[in-house]
């Protein structure tokens, strides 16, 4: 199946007073129509940045410094602002991590939905208002008809989050970039939102890039998962493989840190150390200072994605030519 979204060797840079920071480096992946790609990884790894680059909303001075982004085969990373603005909203719906930055505090939530639909779907005001109430119901806002004229500050954190979701979906885009769409939501509303996203992928063939820290949501929703670390993809593969049998040592540590639901532990497992700052990414594999398996080659050469059983991992352990080639069982055993 041809991919709806193709990202190839994406590189994003931030010129600063102290030199150019590389926030994303060589990021490549596809998402097919009707597919959900989950994106997880260390806080600060570049997940939101990847989403922002796709929807053409990198915050200046950030800029795409290399690579290509294609939607349905057509390049969208080098379009003039106006063209991109029309694609955004109509073809690509965006759910941002921070709901307050998406919502205009001066307009009621209803007005924001109505205007979005009028611009992108060309429908009348009455019809748009009817649909706005419908969307608020879809995302589980109680008494939607009564609350459609509320201002964002009159909603709770999770209710604002749901308005943002409704805004991203109401123009029926073909690709949805969802950055932490469910973190502010309780498990029940979360289940409802996920069911809604799944239904859109199934019935309308919508493709979804789902950025989240919630592994439960990933396990339930995603078809494939990409694990990011320090501006690169560390591992990518089918959801079950990546969550249950991660190959990359960072993914292994990440999955081990998930707090158990069925018991209380004195101390939670965590990956020792912290991700390097963008200005001090170590040479070779960026994970090497924290990796329990690091060997000489890891400190000298940067690994590309390599076949690692059912997934692909950027780790020298999976290069048959490495002096320390460890079969995957050694990592898990």
């Amino acid at each position: 199946m041809a991919a709806l979204l193709e990202v190839r060797n994406l590189r994003v840079e931030f010129p600063t007073r102290r030199g150019v920071l590389t926030a994303l480096d060589g990021v490549s992946f596809d998402i097919a129509a009707g597919e959900v790609l989950g994106v997880v990884g260390e806080s600060g790894a570049g997940k939101s940045m990847t989403g922002a680059a796709i929807i053409g909303l990198l915050e200046p001075p950030g800029r795409i410094a290399g690579g290509e982004i294609r939607l349905d085969g057509q390049r969208i990373d080098n379009l003039p602002y106006e063209r991109m603005r029309r694609i955004r909203g109509k073809e690509i719906g965006a759910i941002f991590q921070d709901p307050l930055t998406t919502l205009n505090p001066l307009y009621t939530v209803g007005r924001q939905l109505v205007e979005t639909m009028q611009v992108h779907l060309g429908i009348g005001a009455a019809e748009a208002r009817r649909r706005a109430i419908g969307w608020l119901e879809h995302v589980g806002i109680p008494a939607a008809a009564q609350r459609v004229d509320s201002y964002p500050h009159e909603f709770s954190g999770g209710m604002r989050q749901r308005v943002v979701i409704a805004l991203a979906l109401c123009a029926e885009p073909r690709l949805v970039v969802a950055d932490e769409p469910t973190t502010a939501l309780d498990v029940s509303i979360q289940a409802q939102i996920i069911a809604l996203l799944k239904r859109l992928t199934r019935e309308k063939g919508t493709a979804v890039m789902l950025i989240t820290h919630d592994m439960g949501v990933i396990a339930e929703t995603a078809d494939r998962v990409a694990v990011m670390y320090a501006g690169r993809i560390a591992e990518i593969g089918p959801v079950r493989e990546v969550v249950k049998h991660p190959r990359h040592p960072y993914s292994v540590g990440l999955m081990a840190s998930i707090p158990p639901l069925d018991r209380r532990v004195e101390r939670l497992a965590q990956i020792e150390g912290a991700m390097p700052r963008l200005s001090a990414i170590p040479p070779g594999c960026a994970f090497n200072p924290r990796c329990p398996h690091a060997f000489d080659r890891c400190r000298a050469e940067r690994p590309e994605l390599l076949e690692a059983g059912a997934t692909r991992a950027a780790c020298w352990l999976y290069d048959p030519a490495s002096e320390k080639h460890v079969p995957e069982s050694a990592i898990h055993g």
């Binding site: 260390e42 973190t183 502010a184 990440l254 840190s257 998930i258 939670l268 965590q270």
Partner: peptide, 15 residues
């Protein structure tokens, strides 16, 4: 919601 924006490893560190 102190840790909802954090990945599970940083979350474990904070908790």
């Amino acid at each position: 919601e102190p840790t909802s924006a954090l990945d599970v490893s940083v979350q474990a560190q904070i908790l």
